[in-house]
Simulated scan of single mutants.
Amino acid sequence: MKAILNALVVVGLGIAPVGAQEACTRDAMVVFDGSGSMAEMGFNLLDEPRIFDARRAVRTVMPQVAPTRRVGLVTYGFGRRESCANVVVRFPPQQDAANRIISEIDRLQPAGETPLTEAIAEAARVLDYKSKPGEIVLVTDGKETCGGAPCQLAGELAAGTDLTVHVIGFRIRGEHFAWPDQPQDTLVEPVARCLADRTGGMYVQAETLDDLIAALRQTLGCQVFGKVTFGRPAMRGVL
């Protein structure tokens, strides 16, 4: 009975549980931050590089998402340090992409800068956002560092056919170092949040591995009502 009630609550909110049989009608692109900060440790109480838990979360969620949604991958941040020429479209949306996404992210070695605006623009082009609907899920731990204007891009994307950008802020920190007895900047939000706000997407802040798993499930899971799938979220924020 409890399981039935939980399922009814999820459907009532308009968000399908991961693993549900409904197929998502909108293709999605994951945009994954592989910049040098994803390899940081010891800064503001990070006991291991962010990339470790990011990989764990992807390994957990993608096998649950891939059977019901065509997903592609864009990465940025690998390669030479202080380089902004590191945006790569790994592959466009495809069926059962879990193993390929997991493999690509497992091999990613964080190093470069953060051209997240260019990465989102590339993902939108792959989705052909001017002629058909789509979803982008950005996983980032920081701000744009390559001169891009994410809020300007958000306006351009919002003028397209029907593109939704979800932003997951993963262990975002402020500009200063905080000692253990000082408040942590856990409420810092990236400027990239405007990408979600202006396209009707969700902004979800994730601090722990469990938070990140839940955020990926929430943003990549099908949005449904009854038997019909929709791309727009029924509500914003963390459920």
Rank of each mutant, 00 (worst) to 15 (best):
A154G: 15
T229C: 09
V65D: 06
M62Y: 08
V137H: 02
L46V: 07
E122T: 10
I213Q: 07
N6A: 12
A215K: 00
P17W: 10
T229E: 11
P67W: 10
V58D: 01
T60P: 01
M41V: 06
L138A: 14
F177Y: 15
A121K: 12
V89H: 06
P150G: 03
T75K: 06
A196W: 00
T25V: 05
T114A: 13
R56I: 09
D181I: 12
T161F: 08
V74S: 01
Q64M: 15
L195V: 07
Y203G: 05
E118V: 04
Q182E: 15
A154L: 12
G147K: 08
V89R: 08
P180I: 08
L13V: 12
I105R: 01
G77M: 00
C222Y: 00
G77Y: 01
A215Y: 02
V167F: 05
I213M: 06
L13S: 14
Q21I: 10
V18K: 02
D211K: 06
V11T: 09
A234P: 13
R173H: 12
Q152Y: 15
I168M: 06
I105K: 03
Q184K: 14
M29K: 01
Q152S: 15
S131G: 08
A85H: 06
Y129A: 05
A111F: 00
R80H: 12
Q94S: 06
D197M: 05
V31F: 08
L163R: 01
R70P: 04
D106C: 03
D96C: 02
G77E: 01
R81F: 11
T208W: 12
L220I: 02
T68S: 13
A119E: 08
E207L: 14
M1E: 14
I120E: 00
A39F: 00
V224D: 03
P183G: 15
A7R: 13
